[in-house]
């Protein structure tokens, strides 16, 4: 590889890294802004999540005497796993800095690791609220897993037998998919949108705005976190949102432009996903909690149909 190419690759990796680490809170802020616009109010500033993070990281924390080191492991794991998972997910034309055979499994399982640690962290408080949130998180994200993997399977069917299994190759096959069986790809994208919403506890699965302990999933899990650990949790959640959004985006984003074009489409895509989520949240009610599994199973079935359509193309 000659120097300019190397430089270009390094530039792409850096751009990817910058988007992954710096952009996520903006997405959360954008969702809030969209919802505010829908409601007919100004809403918090776009940069509010950054302000909140900056404040939390600089203020004190209060720890429950019931808790142990496990409680503090949760926030650390939430951030580390989300960031590492993000490292292997390409953003449209911006290749992931790290790519290897089977990296797609790592995305799902790193998120699972983060979930495991945050659930333990919640259970460490010995409170019914956190237990409730943890139980819901465990149940719902577990049911979201098949939809995610069926999406991977659908894409894998586009690749020739043999050869590697990299997320980059898999997602690069998406344009073929749209050409061959657009219906199937649409179903996969829909299923992944459901995964995005449930994994990030958005309406219709969870309502991050109610602030009522008994109905929430994510916020009630972190009810006892404060100060810097809470900041880490919020940042980790934002990064996780970005990572799954990147996965979803890579199904549809055009690629192959220059570095600047790819960066621009990538960022624009992420912002568009945030707007989409904001619109969804603004226009429908939250599901009854025990109806959530039905919707998740439907998402898996959608992805399953996607697999079938792509298999018979």
């Amino acid at each position: 590889m000659d120097a300019p190419l190397l430089l270009e690759a390094a530039g792409r990796a850096l751009a990817h890294l910058a988007v992954l680490t710096l952009l996520p809170p903006l997405l959360i802020g954008l969702i809030a802004k969209v919802k505010a616009a829908f409601a007919g109010r100004n809403g918090p500033p776009l940069l509010q999540p950054y302000f909140d993070l900056a404040k939390l990281l600089r203020k004190q924390a209060v720890f429950s005497r019931t808790t142990t080191w496990v409680f503090r492991l949760g926030p650390v794991a939430a951030v580390v796993t989300a960031l590492l998972a993000g490292l292997v997910v390409p953003l449209g034309g911006l290749a992931a800095p790290v790519s290897f055979d089977g990296d797609l499994l790592l995305v799902a399982y790193l998120l699972a690791l983060g979930r495991f640690c945050t659930i333990l962290s919640a259970l460490d408080t010995g409170s019914a609220f956190e237990g409730m949130g943890a139980s819901r998180e465990a149940a719902f994200s577990c049911l979201a897993e098949p939809a995610l993997f069926l999406g991977f399977i659908a894409l894998a069917l586009l690749l020739p037998p043999g050869g590697g299994l990299r997320l980059a190759e898999l997602l690069a096959a998406a344009p073929d998919g749209w050409r061959l069986a657009a219906g199937g790809m649409a179903l996969v994208a829909a299923a992944w949108l459901v995964v995005l919403l449930v994994e990030n506890c958005r309406i219709p699965f969870d309502d991050p705005n109610t602030h009522l302990e008994l109905t929430m999933i994510h916020e009630v899990m972190v009810l006892d976190h404060s100060g810097p650990p809470l900041g880490l949790i919020l940042y980790g959640a934002a990064v996780k949102f970005a990572v799954i959004a990147m996965l979803l985006l890579s199904l549809v984003l055009p690629r192959g432009g220059g570095l600047v074009a790819d960066l621009a489409t990538g960022v624009a895509g992420l912002l568009a996903v945030a707007v989409l989520v904001g619109v969804v949240e603004s226009s429908m009610a939250r599901l009854r909690l025990l109806r959530v599994p039905t919707l998740l199973v439907s998402a898996a079935l959608l992805a399953g149909f996607g697999v079938v359509l792509l298999a018979v193309h």
């Binding site: 429950s64 408080t125 010995g126 650990p229």
Partner: peptide, 12 residues
Amino acid sequence: LAALPQGAGPTW
């Protein structure tokens, strides 16, 4: 965390 005074109490 060590740089700031920390509180302790019961779980909320």
